[in-house]
């Protein structure tokens, strides 16, 4: 009886925790929640420094407290892959892939993938740019080559949302947001991969379809 009660309490706690902290893509699904392959966010924008360049950002392992950030690591078994479709069929024509090993981030491409979809290999045809992974509290290390720039390391989570109040609304405990709201993600960190690439490497389309994937070595 007591055991059952404990289990129930644990389940409720788990459900509450999982329920409370969804966000942009933070712990979006049970298979990746609290794993090293959990993508929290994806951004793609024209470089503020150079309008001829595009910037891709992938954030992983969100909701890191400052005290936990120094110990967070990119998983050497996990590849992060930016996918770019430049002919409108939602199938990737180019990939930019990042792997992590011995304190280095290695970014391959853009390159046409030898196979599309759920399984990937490292595509080396497009060359490689590497950067040392920046440690918590250290100045950003920037790798540069071929007109590209690479950064990998902990950053402030750029996502902002009054998730707590949204949860209250969804749960039926509130009927509207507060004004002002409260940013549930304030004060938390993520592991960021930032890649800046000349637009000329992405094909000639006026609009791209883009997305990010995490893939684990099998």
């Amino acid at each position: 009886m007591k055991k059952k009660h404990l289990l129930l309490t644990a389940l409720i706690l788990l459900a509450t925790t999982v329920g409370i902290v969804w966000a942009a893509d933070h712990i979006d699904a049970p298979g990746v929640t609290s794993t090293t392959s959990d993508i929290t966010d994806f951004y793609a924008f024209q470089s503020p420094e150079n309008p001829e360049n595009m910037v891709f950002v992938a954030n992983l392992q969100g909701l890191l407290a400052p005290a936990a950030t120094a110990d967070a690591r990119f998983d050497e078994q996990v590849m992060v892959e930016f996918n770019i479709d430049n002919n409108g069929d939602a199938v990737e024509d180019l990939v930019i892939q990042a792997t992590f090993k011995d304190g280095m981030a290695r970014v391959y491409g853009p390159a046409a993938p030898s196979e599309t979809g759920l399984v990937s290999r490292v595509e080396t045809d497009g060359g490689m740019v590497e950067a040392g992974i920046t440690s918590y509290g250290e100045p950003a290390i920037i790798g540069s080559d071929k007109g590209m720039k690479v950064f990998a390391g902990p950053r402030d989570d750029p996502f902002f949302f009054d998730f707590a109040q949204y949860s209250e609304i969804i749960a039926g405990n509130a009927s509207s947001f507060n004004n002002p709201g409260s940013d549930t993600f304030a004060g938390t960190n993520v592991l960021s991969l930032v890649v800046e690439v000349p637009k000329s490497m992405l094909g000639s389309a006026s609009t791209l379809n883009t997305w990010v994937e995490s893939k684990r070595k099998i």
Partner: peptide, 30 residues
């Protein structure tokens, strides 16, 4: 390497996908 997570627009899986489909959504190509 085998796919585990993906995203394009923010919060899509979180908001629009039912609990039982969330992993499947992450491993279905766009």
């Amino acid at each position: 390497y085998m796919q585990e997570d993906q995203m394009g627009r923010p919060a899509i899986n979180t908001v629009f996908v039912d609990a039982g489909d969330k992993d499947a959504f992450n491993t279905t190509t766009p």
